[in-house]
């Protein structure tokens, strides 16, 4: 059974710049931008503590990064464990995979409380950045 759902397609979401996407089962099969991302840029986003924030919680195959988190599993092998579409949904809104997750919703602006003024109405990453990260995660094979 394939459940198809339109998300982020409401007028308000569009006004805030969130592009519509389609969830199929536990994945978003199509690129948010219509184009593939750049894995090298994705790596830079993932290892940047102000942009991707991933290494606050995750560790990964980065022996040169001294401070990595232990609040989440390693990113190593993510591209083996998950399909591109699954990785995309995980990035866009991880709570759709596990409702109680602490992983932030990187491409969602609805349903958040008391967002600081400088971040209000903005997604953590842009659609382009999500695609770059997804392209990078796909390369993490083990």
């Amino acid at each position: 059974m394939v459940a198809t759902l339109m998300l982020g397609a409401s007028a308000s979401a569009r006004a805030q710049g969130v592009r519509p996407y389609t969830v199929v089962g536990d994945a978003i099969p199509a690129s948010l931008t219509g184009a593939p991302g750049d894995p090298e840029r994705g790596l830079k986003i993932v290892t940047n503590r102000q942009v991707g924030l991933c290494l606050l919680c995750h560790s990964g195959p980065y022996p040169e990064e001294r401070f990595q988190g232990t609040m989440a599993p390693t990113l190593a092998g993510a591209g083996t464990r998950w399909s591109e579409g699954q990785l995309r949904l995980r990035m866009v809104d991880a709570a759709r995979i596990s409702p109680e997750t602490i992983m932030p919703p990187y491409y969602r602006v609805d349903g958040l409380t008391r967002v600081a003024p400088g971040f209000r109405g903005k997604t953590i990453l842009t659609a382009e950045q999500i695609e770059d990260v997804v392209a990078y995660l796909k390369t993490l094979k083990n």
Binding site: Q68, G69, T70, I102, P104, T113, R114
Partner: peptide, 28 residues
């Protein structure tokens, strides 16, 4: 206990559920 902010975290997420774990280099 309430999720707040753009990162959608609660105080409890860090200080109860993950106390002792590392947030980047810092032990929570």
């Amino acid at each position: 206990a309430r999720r707040q902010g753009q990162l959608n975290l609660s105080c409890q997420n860090c200080h109860d559920d993950n106390a002792g774990q590392k947030l980047a280099g810092v032990e929570l």
